[in-house]
Structures are given as structure tokens and as C-alpha cells.
């Protein structure tokens, strides 16, 4: 069982940072709603508030890690130009997608949207984390501030969802591959 370095980085970016961020988003929305809504059923202990602060900081770290690895590690491999005369485009995903009308849209719509909209997630969730750390339970008393924080948290979820969906589809149609091979295990013959 082996994997190439580029595939490993793509997995770290997409499944490690991106997917974990998406999983965390729904939890953040629920907890933000629960801890900052003035109702008898809501409310928070200092421990729950501290937990959500750490949770939101972790989400911001995940979001920044996802966009930075995407833009500076994987994207250069994705958009690399093949040497003139290259017939096999499997190591040049962008060119491979654009070489066929059936797949060109995954780049011209998918990657073109994903590469920009993905950055809305870290910007939004950093702001959300900052506001919750600063105001904490006092957000209960700031109705419009609370609504805006929830709105931006939802927007970060949508932005990450768009990026995640197109990232998965791009990698399905033209995977980023190549580089040194990493042997994970040596399987026996059956």
C-alpha cells in the first residue's frame, strides 16, 4: 500500500483540515445559538463558555491551515504547466480538465469559485471566534451582534461547503498526484 507525496498533502488539506472544519461547523452553530440565546433552556456555565472559545479558535486554525495548504502546497501542483509536447496530462490536473469539454467546467467554474470563496471561511470564523472571546455570555445582551455572528458562522460553513464539494469533485476528475512515493505497508500476495 503506497501513496504519493502530492496525494498525501491533498488528503491532509481536504480530509484533514477541510472536512474536519465542515464537521466542526454544525457544532459551532448549535453551540453559538444555544449559549447566546436568551431563553430558559439556554445558558452556559463558565466551563462550557471556555470550551466553545477553544473550539472556535481550533476551527479558525483548521480553516487557515486548509486555505494555506490549498493555495501554497497543492494549487501550484494543480496549475503547473506541462512542458511543450506533453501528451500524458495526468500530472497536470488543470490542463487535464481543460483538455475535454466534459471536464472543463470543473476548473472554469469549480476551481475558479473554490479558490476564492474558500477564504471567506477563515476570515469569517476568525471574526466569530474573536467576538465570542471578547463578549462571551454577554452576547446574550447584544441581539444584533449575536445575529451577525451567527450569520457569518453560517456563511463560513457555506463557503467551506462550496470549497469542499468542488475540491472533492476536482480530485475525483483530475487528482493531484505525483512526487515521491511513500510506502505505507507491504501487503502479501493472495
Amino acid at each position: 500500500m503506497e501513496i504519493t507525496l502530492r496525494s498525501l498533502w491533498t488528503m491532509i488539506h481536504g480530509m484533514g483540515f477541510g472536512a474536519l472544519y465542515l464537521l466542526a461547523s454544525s457544532g459551532a452553530l448549535v453551540e453559538l445559538w444555544r449559549l447566546t440565546t436568551p431563553s430558559p433552556a439556554s445558558g452556559s456555565t463558565p466551563g462550557q463558555e471556555r470550551f466553545l472559545k477553544i473550539y472556535l479558535i481550533s476551527m479558525a486554525v483548521l480553516a487557515w491551515a486548509a486555505v494555506l495548504t490549498g493555495a501554497y502546497v497543492i494549487y501550484p501542483w494543480y496549475r503547473a504547466a506541462p512542458p511543450p509536447g506533453t501528451v500524458d496530462l495526468s500530472l497536470f490536473p488543470q490542463r487535464l480538465l481543460l483538455s475535454s469539454p466534459a471536464t472543463a467546467g470543473w476548473h472554469s467554474l469549480g476551481m475558479e469559485w473554490k479558490e476564492h470563496v474558500a477564504w471567506f471561511a477563515p476570515i469569517s470564523i476568525t471574526m466569530v471566534a474573536f467576538v465570542f472571546i471578547r463578549y462571551g455570555r454577554d452576547l446574550v445582551n447584544h441581539k444584533q451582534l449575536r445575529a451577525a455572528v451567527l450569520g457569518f458562522a453560517a456563511a463560513s460553513f457555506i463557503a467551506a461547503g462550496v470549497a469542499g464539494f468542488f475540491g472533492a469533485m476536482l480530485n475525483k476528475n483530475a487528482p493531484v498526484q505525483g512526487g515521491p512515493v511513500i510506502q505505507l505497508s507491504r501487503g502479501g500476495e493472495k
Binding site: 446574550v140 451582534l145 455572528v149
Partner: peptide
Amino acid sequence: RASQSHPPALTNGSGAAAI
């Protein structure tokens, strides 16, 4: 628990600036 509305302890300026 902090489940009831009270007068805000902080002004909204810092939050508004972030948003």
C-alpha cells in the same frame, strides 16, 4: 447560568468593528 437578558457589560463597538 447566563440565560436572561441584562444590560450589556460591554459596548457593541468592538464587535461591530470585527463584523
